[in-house]
């Protein structure tokens, strides 16, 4: 009996994006990381090149976290408020491929750091670790637009990944990333139409498509994971069928989103099992599920989840 050939033939693929620059390339990083490059759906090796395996970026906050659940805080308690030491631990002890410097401290409703303070934080982390860097604003447009040009300038040559460009606020960050040679994260609020629109808007400014990473926004297990999955899947298929405005690698935020889930953060719920396991499990399940839809950078928070996701990547891509 003939077995029918069910392989799909795709005409497009995911762009390869290069993160970080070594000294030889004008930066100071120990290594560069390549992401994307898939020419088919994740794991479907028999159809073609599945691209680079996903990489893990661990979050490093510029301020000591105030609302982190105890099991998550325990791992970084002694370095909280010291981003350089925190970043070092992520890379050296927990094997993070990159660190994501999350500048929550810029927020006017929070610590209200100045742009100069943010630059200082970023440069300290840069000195402390040799991996490529992600720098993520606080989400307050005015504050981010003030800080990001200075951060971008301070990191010139490092080919960092800066975020985020949004539909209503993309010009400043796009312009500085373009000028300083960085990669750019385009954010859309779980909306594939806006996702495409933001990519068109930044590309209209002359930003190269192969320096964009998409953040479609993440919903954790029980909080919109299936919706996130279907958006990422649809985006991936559009890219594979030749839609250049959807052909970018994807970053997901499993750390923050998973630890917001009450199943992860509730201390007083013995019926759900030990709390120190619940959060890492929530992060791991969210991340490994999205890996099957197609994700290239996974933002994590807990070291246990980071290790478990690392094992899953090795199993899927080994």
């Amino acid at each position: 009996m003939n077995i029918p050939d069910v392989r799909e033939k795709w005409t497009g693929g995911i762009n390869e994006v290069v993160l970080g620059a070594t000294r030889a390339e004008g930066g100071t990083r120990d290594k560069v990381i390549r992401i994307g490059g898939g020419k088919t759906i994740p794991l479907m090796r028999f159809e073609g090149d599945i691209g680079h395996p996903p990489v893990i970026a661990m979050d490093v906050l510029d301020v000591a976290p105030e609302d982190w659940p105890a099991p998550l805080l325990a791992a970084i308690k002694d370095v909280a408020g010291n981003p350089a030491a925190w970043a070092k631990r992520c890379v050296e002890d927990w094997g993070a491929d990159l660190v994501c410097i999350k500048l929550d401290g810029l927020d006017p409703d929070g610590a209200n750091h100045t742009a100069e303070q943010a630059v200082e934080t970023v440069l300290k982390v840069k000195e402390a670790v040799g991996c490529p860097l992600i720098v993520w604003g606080c989400g307050d447009h005015a504050k981010d637009n003030e800080a990001m040009p200075k951060i971008s300038q301070a990191l010139k040559g490092e080919r960092a990944l800066l975020g985020c460009a949004e539909e209503k606020n993309y010009k400043t960050i796009t312009a500085v990333c373009l000028a300083d040679g960085h990669n750019l994260i385009t954010l859309s609020p779980l909306d594939i139409n806006i996702q495409k629109q933001v990519n068109i808007l930044v590309s209209d400014m002359g930003f190269p498509l192969d320096r964009i990473v998409i953040f479609p926004t993440t919903g954790a297990l029980g909080y919109g994971l299936e919706y996130t999955y279907s958006i990422q899947e649809r985006g991936r298929i559009a890219a594979l069928t030749g839609d250049k405005m959807m052909a970018m690698p994807v970053i997901c935020d499993t750390g923050y989103e998973s630890w917001r889930a009450k199943e992860a953060k509730s201390a007083d719920a013995p019926e759900w099992g030990p709390q120190e396991l619940r959060g890492p499990i929530w992060e791991t399940v969210t991340a490994t599920t999205l890996m099957q839809a197609g994700v290239d950078i996974i933002r994590t928070r807990s070291p246990q989840a980071t290790a478990a996701i690392r094992r899953a990547i090795a199993r899927f891509y080994g």
């Binding site: 139409n193 495409k196 808007l201 985006g235 839609d243």
Partner: peptide, 8 residues
């Protein structure tokens, strides 16, 4: 549905 909608 051959192209994903965007405002552009």
């Amino acid at each position: 549905n051959k192209q994903i909608y965007s405002d552009s």
